[in-house]
Structure formats: structure tokens, C-alpha cells
């Protein structure tokens, strides 16, 4: 996730205020990232009720650990996304992999998991920024080869290890490692505008 270019207060300042115990700063952070975090959680756990739990847990953890956020290690958006994704994957693992057979089938179809862009929401400015980020990410993913994109999506949204992905796709481990690396390199180049200066 990227920092919002027009945000009046930098994300990192919100996090500092959270560390000082200011609830309103948490509310502001939620207003900026709540939708994205919820969508991410839902994409991973697939159940709205579970996704809501993940969002509450993730923001709760961000709140409790705000003082340990270190801007030198990355942006607030990436920090939040990591927390939420970790929580969501924990939920998914706890629920067991068996029930997700049909979801895997959907992931492995040509369409993949990435969705068309949609800009809705109460705050038009935020919606536009979010929509811009979604457009960039969607374009970047579309620029990958199909196999690269599938490998990265399995890693990101299902939390599969490289060897699990190799097994799932019946491909040699080395091939999968190469695909993920090459795909991530390409995304790094394409998403430059989005992730630059995100600290």
C-alpha cells in the first residue's frame, strides 16, 4: 500500500500519535486503510465474518505496537498490509486447507484473483487515490506472464511456500523460484511510482 499523496498528516505521524495513546489517530488510520485492509483480509479468508475479525485484530496489533513502528524499515501501508496478511493467513491455516479446494480452482483459472478496478466509497478523494493505486497494481500484475502472476498470487493470497506452490502446480521448484523472483523484480520496476517515497 502506498502513502496517500495528498494526506494532510503523514501516515507515520498518525502512528506516532497512536503510540501516545490517541484513539482519534487510530480512527484516521482506519479511514485511510480500513477498506484496503478489509479487502485484503477478505481475499485471503473469503468469509466476511472472518475478514472483520482479521481487520479488528490487525488494527488492534497496529495500535498496541505503534511504538515499535520504524519508518526506516518501510511505509505504514506496507507495515499494516503485512500485519493484516499475516493475521489473515493464520486464520486461513487455522481453518484448514481442505475446505478451500474450490477457491484454489478459481485462483488457477485464467482470470486469477485480481479484480477489475472499482472506485466507490464515502470519501471521493480517498476513493480516487485508492482507485489509482488499484489501477497501477492491476496494470502491473497484468504485465506479468500468466504463470508468474499465478505463482505470486498463490504466495501472497494463500501464503504457500515456494515448494508448496511447485507441488500445487506440478512444476519443478527451481522454475517456481525463478518465476516468483522475476515477477517480483518486474513488479518492483512497474510499481516504482506507487512505492517510491513511501517511507
Amino acid at each position: 500500500m502506498a502513502t496517500l499523496p495528498n494526506a494532510p498528516v503523514p501516515d507515520s505521524q498518525l502512528v506516532s500519535r497512536m503510540a501516545a495513546g490517541e484513539d482519534a489517530a487510530l480512527g484516521d488510520l482506519y479511514d485511510r486503510y480500513g477498506r484496503t485492509v478489509y479487502a485484503l483480509a477478505l481475499a485471503i479468508v473469503r468469509e466476511p465474518a472472518d475478514a472483520e475479525e482479521v481487520v479488528v485484530d490487525a488494527f488492534g496489533q497496529a495500535w498496541r505496537r505503534a511504538a515499535s513502528f520504524d519508518a526506516a524499515r518501510g511505509s505504514v501501508g506496507a507495515w499494516l498490509a503485512t500485519i493484516a496478511r499475516t493475521r489473515a493467513l493464520d486464520t486461513l491455516r487455522a481453518r484448514g486447507r481442505r475446505a478451500r479446494a474450490h477457491e484454489r480452482a478459481a485462483l488457477l483459472s485464467d482470470e486469477g484473483i485480481a479484480a477489475p478496478i472499482a472506485a466507490t466509497g464515502s470519501d471521493p478523494a480517498r476513493a480516487v487515490e485508492r482507485s489509482e493505486a488499484r489501477r497501477l497494481v492491476s496494470q502491473a500484475l497484468a504485465a506479468l506472464s500468466g504463470p508468474q502472476r499465478i505463482a505470486i498470487e498463490l504466495a501472497y493470497f494463500e501464503g504457500l511456500s515456494q515448494s508448496e506452490i511447485a507441488e500445487r502446480l506440478s512444476e519443478p521448484l527451481g522454475t517456481i523460484k525463478t518465476r516468483i523472483r522475476a515477477g517480483m523484480e518486474k513488479l518492483r520496476g512497474l510499481l516504482g511510482p506507487l512505492v517510491e517515497g513511501a517511507a
Binding site: 477498506r35 475478514a51 498490509a81 517480483m184
Partner: peptide, 20 residues
């Protein structure tokens, strides 16, 4: 650090969803 930002950005690849 750079790849962590890329991973963070991938959150935007999730299908759009409206939280309650």
C-alpha cells in the same frame, strides 16, 4: 525493503470490498 513495499502494494490487487 523494496520488495516489502511491492508486497504491501499487492494488497490493492484484492477484489474491492466494502467493510460494514
Amino acid at each position: 525493503r523494496a520488495f516489502a513495499e511491492v508486497a504491501g502494494a499487492l494488497a490493492h490487487a484484492a477484489p474491492s470490498a466494502e467493510p460494514p
